[in-house]
């Protein structure tokens, strides 16, 4: 029994890192859809920037997940060649771009979570994850500033922008709770000093989001509903369509170098 322990820990770590990678990949993929279609040229560059940050983080995490797993899977094997049920991103990340308000609210929810998450992860006993965290923290701090500024402008801008942004908040609110979920995998990582107590980040997230919403003259929606499933591979209808784009080349032309 005692010899099984390292393997079990490696298995949990693989899954933990993979979840984290999937979050950044799927949200980065969504941001890539904006390219060339944003409200201003400056915002086109900014959304691409954020998408590039997330893709870069995903690449480091996939590569590391492959090393942890030890079966020779590359970043691309992991990113492109799994079945839908084996992707573990939170459902928030796969939600469609909608209008600009939806995109920015989604990004705010993500960044307000990832800032304290990466901050805590810099203290990980796992040197690789601590290093990824230190680099990613700087990036998501910028994402959080950028999104907060937009939320404030949209909320306190025109009647229309206020209504749209409130609607975006209402539409996505129930997807935030999944970010704070803990399960066996996450608990295992927490007790071994590798992972982060996501549940404990809720107060931080609430404070950040509440402050932004107050300045934006927007209402914090009621915590009356929540969605879950992504961490166990149970996705919304959107995921299959994301994968049909994402995996198109690798599925159509298996086993080639590009």
């Amino acid at each position: 029994m005692a010899d099984l322990m390292p393997d079990m820990i490696a298995g949990a770590k693989f899954k933990y890192v993979l979840r984290l990678a999937d979050d950044q990949l799927i949200l980065g993929q969504r941001l890539g859809e904006w390219c060339g279609h944003a409200p201003t040229l400056e915002e086109d560059l900014a959304l691409a920037n954020i998408g590039l940050d997330l893709l870069g983080q995903a690449r480091s995490l996939f590569t590391y997940a492959g090393e942890v797993e030890g079966e020779g899977r590359s970043e691309d094997d992991l990113a492109f060649l799994r079945q839908e049920r084996d992707y573990f991103n939170a459902l928030l990340m796969e939600q469609p771009n909608g209008d600009f308000a939806v995109t920015i609210v989604r990004q705010l929810f993500h960044a307000a979570f990832m800032v304290p998450f990466w901050s805590a992860m810099t203290g990980s006993s796992d040197k690789t994850l601590a290093a990824v965290a230190a680099k990613s923290l700087k990036e998501v701090e910028y994402h959080l500033r950028h999104c907060s500024e937009w939320i404030i402008r949209l909320g306190d801008g025109t009647e229309e922008s206020h209504v749209r942004t409130q609607a975006a908040l209402d539409e996505l609110w129930g997807y935030a709770s999944e970010l704070f979920e803990m399960d066996e995998v996450a608990d295992e990582m927490l007790v071994t000093g590798v992972g982060v107590d996501a549940a404990a980040l809720k107060d931080d997230w609430d404070a950040t989001v509440d402050a932004v919403l107050a300045r934006a003259t927007l209402n914090r929606p009621e915590d009356s509903w929540s969605q879950t499933g992504g961490r166990s591979g149970q996705h919304s209808e959107h995921m299959g369509h994301i994968l049909s784009d994402l995996q198109y080349m690798q599925r159509t032309y298996p086993g080639l170098s590009w």
Binding site: A38, P39, T40, E43, F100, I152, R153, L154, D156, G157, T158, E160, S161, R164
Partner: peptide, 11 residues
């Protein structure tokens, strides 16, 4: 996206 630019201006 005109509404976004209008919002930024109004703000």
């Amino acid at each position: 996206n005109a509404w976004v630019r209008e919002a930024a201006l109004a703000y």
